[in-house]
């Protein structure tokens, strides 16, 4: 739905200094643009739970991190995100890819559609569903609103395939 250059332009404007990620096939298409961005450092981690810990350390150190993972990685992240955003109350922000939301041709009956939004609610993460190109501006608006409120947040980006 969105290109790497679009995302890089947006997060550069937001002052993001580091992207901590585990890519999927949709978000991963942003890699070239993220790698080329002069003011953004891409931190590649091995498992999604790590994204929250690394982002927590970056935040404590005065940087402005952004987590990028798929919803399956959100499921994996549970304890790490609980610790960072609830125990320590760190206002971390994530872009989460919503697998199969637009198209289930690859994975018919994908249970990501069943669990993603209830999991975000369970972890008390304020999220915005971005399910159409015209909602692009809501990513930045939600990020700014969360930052000003000092709370964590998620932009949930609808994806079409696994």
């Amino acid at each position: 739905m969105f290109t790497g250059p679009q995302i890089v332009e947006l997060i550069s404007e937001l002052g993001i200094t580091h992207v901590v990620w585990v890519p999927d096939s949709t978000l991963g298409q942003w890699e070239e643009a993220l790698t080329a961005a002069p003011n953004i450092e891409l931190v590649r981690v091995c498992r999604e739970g790590e994204t929250w810990a690394v982002a927590a350390g970056l935040h404590l150190g005065g940087a402005r991190p952004l987590v990028i993972i798929q919803c399956t990685g959100l499921f994996e992240s549970g304890d790490a995100l609980r610790n960072a955003v609830h125990d320590y109350k760190l206002p971390l922000f994530a872009i989460v890819g919503y697998r199969s939301y637009l198209n289930q041709s690859t994975l018919p009956g994908d249970t990501c559609l069943v669990f993603t939004e209830p999991i975000l609610d369970a972890w008390r993460l304020d999220y915005r569903l971005i399910d159409a190109p015209e909602k692009f501006s809501q990513i930045g608006e939600h990020y700014i609103a969360c930052r000003e409120a000092g709370k964590p947040g998620v932009a949930l980006i609808a994806e079409g395939k696994a």
């Binding site: 200094t17 927590a56 150190g61 991190p65």
Partner: peptide
């Protein structure tokens, strides 16, 4: 000192990495 208590077990290296990259 950052005494990672309560912690998410296994995540201290990542936390330290984030601090190291930021500073």
């Amino acid at each position: 000192d950052f005494n990672f208590v309560p912690s998410s077990m296994g995540q201290a290296p990542g936390l330290g990495l984030g601090i190291a990259l930021a500073r």
